[in-house]
Every structure is written in structure tokens, then in C-alpha cells.
Design a protein around this nucleic acid. Structure first.
Lengths: 199, 199
DNA sequence: TGTACATCAGTGAACGCGCGTTCACTGATGTAC
DNA sequence: TGTACATCAGTGAACGCGCGTTCACTGATGTAC
């Protein structure tokens, strides 16, 4: 057998990682396979021995975030999934709604970078996106320790506030207003958390 | 002078309206000038006597919403800009975070349909988008009658929650979860409003 | 009132470019001897 | 240990298509007489 067993798997991972960054930056339609492959240090033609189509790469990039950059991000933010307590939810929000995250176009959460793209994408991509959301909501839910329908509702609202605040801040050409939106979402999120029964 | 004075202006308005709907549905990149012109009952070639470029149409479509479909929408939702009282803010949220709005792909608010497109668009488009946001935030602010920095912050957070909730709901392939997100955002918005000092 | 005319909104063919995808091939690599 | 070999990851030229944009033309319209 030529090449080591995981050689191809590693190349594939490099393509997905390059795609994740470029999709975050420029969106699905404006990223060409040429650019993805070049960023991964390869050439155009090899792409189709790794992926069925450009669409297949899209869902791989979205769902790849959770285990890759997303895990790294949780570690940096000091979020420990094994500990479940309200302070962890606060920690998540501090990280998600931070100025650093707002400035990080390449490393940002795909839920911020790609929502309107995803809303028009195929079911596979949308399922990957929903999986990201469920993971965020699940973390909120467990950390707030309210295992009722109201608890889930609160967790969903927190997700909407975090993602919504960042999505809007990113559209604004005026960085002062963008920062104000980020801060406002942060404040409201804290308010929602402190209104939770278990806190 | 051949053709009435406002003939060209009306044609232009028809193009903008067609563009607004198509952009809402499919996003900027996937809408072709051909389709816009066809939808407006015209042919390809005439486009450039109305707009400098496809980009110029984009910002016209985004800022056109406020006076066109947006005004109609406010009327339907029973929002009266001349009355400023908390019940009007509640009215706005009821309309914005409604099941009807979630189902209305063509008539929806462009802030829901296009945020990740706009984040990568030129400054002109982004300015038009910011104008939409300012108008929504201004309405919240005045209606809640809290003319302090905290009042503006609350208004910004409400906007983030309304837009964020709808943006996320729209990405989800599973309509039950989508509806849950919408409801959760609605509940949290009401909670934020009722926590305002003047209510 | 009817007709010739000038204007310019709208037409549709054409151009050039870039993209997703295909495919015959090349050459780096691990293995067998 | 060194060499010939089979494999298959990766190459790069080519294809076909669709899109934004241009441009020479057409014909519907209001006006002047």
C-alpha cells in the first residue's frame, strides 16, 4: 500500500479546515474549489477524490467546526463541558459575545458567519448547522440546571441572543454601533441568566 | 417628451420590488439580473439604464424595504409610529416574531434574510442595512420611553433577540425546533420589556 | 382632429470570464524480493 | 541493504455552462403643427 493509512484522511482534514476558514470569510458561493485546494496546498483536480461535490464540502466544513476549531475555542474560553454550573454558562457568553470573537473573521463560529447561506442550503448542511445549535443550547441548558421546558426555552433564547447579537454586529459598517450591539446582547444575556430560578 | 414623467421611476420601482423578493428568497449571488428583469416584466438589456451595476440594485433593494413592504408590514401589524407607548413595542415584537413572518419568505424583513450576505457586501449596502436596524431600534427606544443609555441598550438587545431568533429559526430544517426558537425569543423579549423601568 | 416626428425606454444578440466538474496522466510512496 | 514494482493520491488541461455587462437597434409614446 503506497502512502500511510491515514495520509488521505489527513489531506481531507486539511481541505475541510481550509474550507471552513474561507467559507467563514467569504460565504459559500464566493469560495471556489480552486482557492480551497490552493489554501490546502493542493491543486484543483484532486478535490473530487475527497468529496462528491462542493455541497458535500460545505456540510463537512460546518459540522467539522464542533470537533475542530470549536473545541479549541471552548478550551480557550475556559469552558469545561464536564462541569455544569451557571458560571460555565456565563463563561460561554463572555467568550461568544466577546470583542475578540467579533474581530475573528476566520475563526468565528459558523452560526454567525453563515446563517443566511445555510437557510438556502441543502438539508445535509442545515442538519449540520442544527447540530451546532443543539450543542450550544444543550450546554446552556445543562449549565443552568433547569431541566424543565422553561429551562430549554431560556437556553434557546440565550442562543438566539448570542448568535443574533454577533450576526448583526458583523453586518454594521460602523464599528461603534457594532460594539454597542455586542455589549447590549451581552447585558441582556446576563439579565436572562440571573432571572433563571436556579441562579 | 415621450413617456410620462414618472414612467421610468415606476419601472425602476418595479425592478427594485422584484429584486427585494428574489434576494430575500435566494440571496444576492444566486439571483441573476435576468431573473430580476423577467420578474419585473422586462428584458435583460434595459437593466443598465436604471442601475450602474448589480451591486447598486442590492442597496436599493435593502433600503427600499423601509418605505415599501416595511411600511405595509407595520400597518398590518398595527404598529402606529405616531403613538409611543410600551404596548407598541409589544405589538412590534408580536408581529416580528410571529409564525406568519417566519413563513413569509418573500415578504420577510431583509435583516432576517440577508445578514451574512450583507456582512460581506460593499459599504453602501451595509449602510442601508444599518439604516434598517436604526429604524427598528429607534422605534423600540421611543416606545419604551426610556431615554437613557440603558434604554438604548435594551432596544438594541431586543433587536438582536428578534432578528437573531428569526435568523436561526430560518436555518433549521426541523420546523418544530424552528418554532421553539421563535417562541423562546418571543418569551425572552417580553421578559426584557417587562423588566424595563418605565413599564 | 389627424398625422409626422423626435425621443428614449426597452430589446436581444454578443462578449468575455470564471466556475464546477471530468479525465487521462504522473510520480511519490510503501512493499516484496 | 538495495532495487523493481504496483498502487493510488495528486496533477493540470479541457469542457460546458451561466452570468454580468455592453451595444447597436427598435418601436411605443407624447408633442408640434
Amino acid at each position: 500500500m503506497p502512502y500511510k493509512a491515514d495520509h488521505k484522511k489527513q489531506t481531507r482534514a486539511r481541505i475541510v479546515e481550509a474550507a471552513r476558514i474561507l467559507f467563514n470569510r467569504d460565504g459559500f458561493d464566493r469560495v471556489t474549489i480552486d482557492r480551497v485546494m490552493e489554501e490546502a496546498g493542493l491543486t484543483r483536480g484532486g478535490f473530487y477524490s475527497h468529496f462528491r461535490s462542493k455541497d458535500a464540502l460545505y456540510s463537512a466544513a460546518v459540522s467539522g467546526f464542533l470537533m475542530g476549531r470549536g473545541a479549541q475555542w471552548r478550551a480557550e474560553a475556559g469552558v469545561d463541558p464536564s462541569r455544569t454550573e451557571p458560571s460555565m454558562a456565563v463563561q460561554m457568553i463572555e467568550g461568544y459575545l466577546s470583542t475578540a470573537h467579533l474581530g475573528d473573521r476566520d475563526g468565528q463560529c459558523p452560526m454567525i458567519a453563515l446563517p443566511s447561506d445555510v437557510a438556502r442550503a441543502n438539508p445535509e448542511v442545515r442538519a449540520a448547522y442544527q447540530q451546532l445549535l443543539e450543542s450550544m443550547v444543550g450546554l446552556f441548558e445543562r449549565n443552568l440546571g433547569d431541566n424543565t421546558p422553561e429551562g430549554r426555552q431560556r437556553a434557546l433564547a440565550l442562543a438566539a441572543l448570542c448568535i443574533g447579537g454577533m450576526v448583526i454586529a458583523r453586518t454594521l459598517p460602523d464599528s461603534t454601533t457594532a460594539e454597542a450591539v455586542r455589549k447590549a446582547a451581552h447585558g441582556a444575556a446576563m439579565q436572562l441568566i440571573s432571572a433563571a430560578p436556579s441562579v
